[in-house]
Amino acid sequence: MSAVLTVQDIHTFIGQFHILEGVTVEVPDHSITALLGRNGAGKTTTLRSIMGLNPPARGQIQYRGQALNGRKPYDIAQLGLGYVPDYRAIFRQLTVEENLKIAERRPGDLDRKRQFIFEIFPDLEKLYQWPGGQLSGGQQQMLAIARALVPDNSLLLIDEPSEGLAPVIIEGMMAAIRRLTAQAAVLLVEQNFRVASQLADRYVIIEDGRSVHSGTMPDLLASPALIQKYLSAA
């Protein structure tokens, strides 16, 4: 199984704050890798570093053999990366359709993907002409993920998709994310350990800006000590 993305020992500063102090992540193709760790550990910053929104000062980021370092965010996205930020970033004044349309990288992208998107998120079909600002939290989350599906992305960075959603909505969201691996690899940040453990094939634990552990999800589930040490809300 080849890696779509290799993040090698990156260091990222925000202002003068040294936020990431050595993060290494590998994302194999067509699988889900979970970034785990406590609040403030540096998970969001890792995703933003990959997208070039907080470019790392040191370390290497390789996507399908190409270095991402030094590239602008729009350039990185065009290589086939889709970003779903934790705040969802739905354009409130744009309709659902326009929110999807803006993600096209080639004319016709949305026409090609519309059926697939409606299949995964049936709600979006009846909301198609609604302004993004009037969707519920769960609907906005669906739209945010759907938007990343419009172009042919082969890596999706999804930040806290279950945050603030009702349990029944979370179930649907999980089913949807599982289906995405047919066409893309997923790097998932997820605070809800139950969700993360059911979805992900592999995990990377981040603690205080450093990646401290990684492996397969079954291995992690088999070591309560590890979970206790890094992931319990202590």
């Binding site: 602008k72 965010p73 729009y74 996205a77 065009q78 970033a89 803006i102 990288r105 938007r147 172009p151």
Partner: peptide, 8 residues
């Protein structure tokens, strides 16, 4: 920023 992250 999000517009840029969409490849624009």
């Amino acid at each position: 920023e999000m517009v840029q992250a969409l490849g624009i």
